[in-house]
Write a protein that binds this DNA or RNA. Structure first.
Lengths: 121, 121
DNA sequence: CATACTGGTATACTTTATGTAACTGCTATC
DNA sequence: GATAGCAGTTACATAAAGTATACCAGTATG
C-alpha cells in the first residue's frame, strides 16, 4: 500500500558529494570494469586478446569498453594489420583514477584483517 | 562453442590487490549502501525513520543493514521504549572508510568537470 | 574453395538485484 | 475491541546484469 519515494532532506553539498561518489562507483561497478582497468594498466591489448585473457564474452567486453571509452578511460585504435586489429589502451587520464583504486586497495586489505582477526566493533 | 573461463595469468600480489579492491567494492555496491552510510554519518536512525528518510522498503533496508552489521560498519541497538525501537548507528570503525569515500568524492567531482568541459583525452 | 583468424553484433537465456504487497507480534491509544 | 505505530519477514513480480551460442564481414593461408 505504501510507496517508497525519494528523500525529502538532502542539504545541498551533501547531495553533491553523494552524486560524485555515485559517479565514481559507476566507473568500477559490475563484474568486469575493474579487472579490465587492471589488465590494461600493464599494457594495451587487442579485443580478442583481452577477451581471452580475462575470460569475458565479446558481448560484455564490447559493452564495457564502450562505457569506458565514453568516460575517457580507454582509447580504441584501429590498426592496419593483415586481419584488421583494434588496440585498446588506458588513457593518461585513467591514471588519475589510481588514487581511488589505491584507497580501495588499502582499505580492503585492512578490512580483511579486521574481519578475520575479529576485532571488537 | 567457446567457454570463457577464468584468467590464466595473475601474478600473486596483483591478484591480492584486485581482491582487496573487490572487497571494498562490495561494501558500497548496489543502490542503497552508500546512501545509508552517508545518512547514518550525521546521526543514528531508527529503522522506520531511516526507511522513510531515504525511501527504501523495509525488505531492502533490513538486508542492507544486516550486511553492514556483518562488516562491522553499523551497530544495532534495541531500545526499551514503549513500542520497542531499534537504533542503527555507524561504528567508529566505519570512520576508517571515509578515506575511500573522500577519494571517490574527489575523483567523481574532477571527473564530472573533465567530461562536461570536454578536455582532450 | 575450405579453414581460421580478426572485431565485433544478435538473440535467447539464466541469474541476481530490486520492488511491491501483505502479514506477524508487540504495545499503546481511542 | 478497533486502530495505529514499531521492527521486521515472507512470498511474489519485475528489472537489470551476466552468460551462451551463433553469426557477419573481411583477409589470409593451405
Amino acid at each position: 500500500m505504501k510507496k517508497y519515494s525519494a528523500p525529502s532532506h538532502s542539504s545541498q553539498n551533501c547531495a553533491e558529494s553523494r552524486r560524485a561518489i555515485q559517479d565514481t562507483l559507476e566507473i568500477i561497478n559490475g563484474k568486469w570494469k575493474l579487472i579490465i582497468i587492471i589488465t590494461l594498466s600493464s599494457r594495451p591489448y587487442r579485443f580478442k586478446e583481452l577477451s581471452r585473457e580475462i575470460g569475458i564474452s565479446p558481448r560484455m567486453l564490447s559493452k564495457e569498453l564502450q562505457d569506458m571509452e565514453v568516460n575517457h578511460l580507454v582509447t580504441r585504435t584501429v590498426l592496419a594489420t593483415k586481419p584488421i586489429s583494434v588496440e585498446y589502451a588506458l588513457t593518461k587520464y585513467a591514471e588519475t583514477f589510481r588514487e581511488v583504486l589505491d584507497a580501495m586497495k588499502n582499505w580492503g586489505m585492512k578490512h580483511r584483517d579486521h574481519i578475520i582477526h575479529g576485532a571488537a566493533v
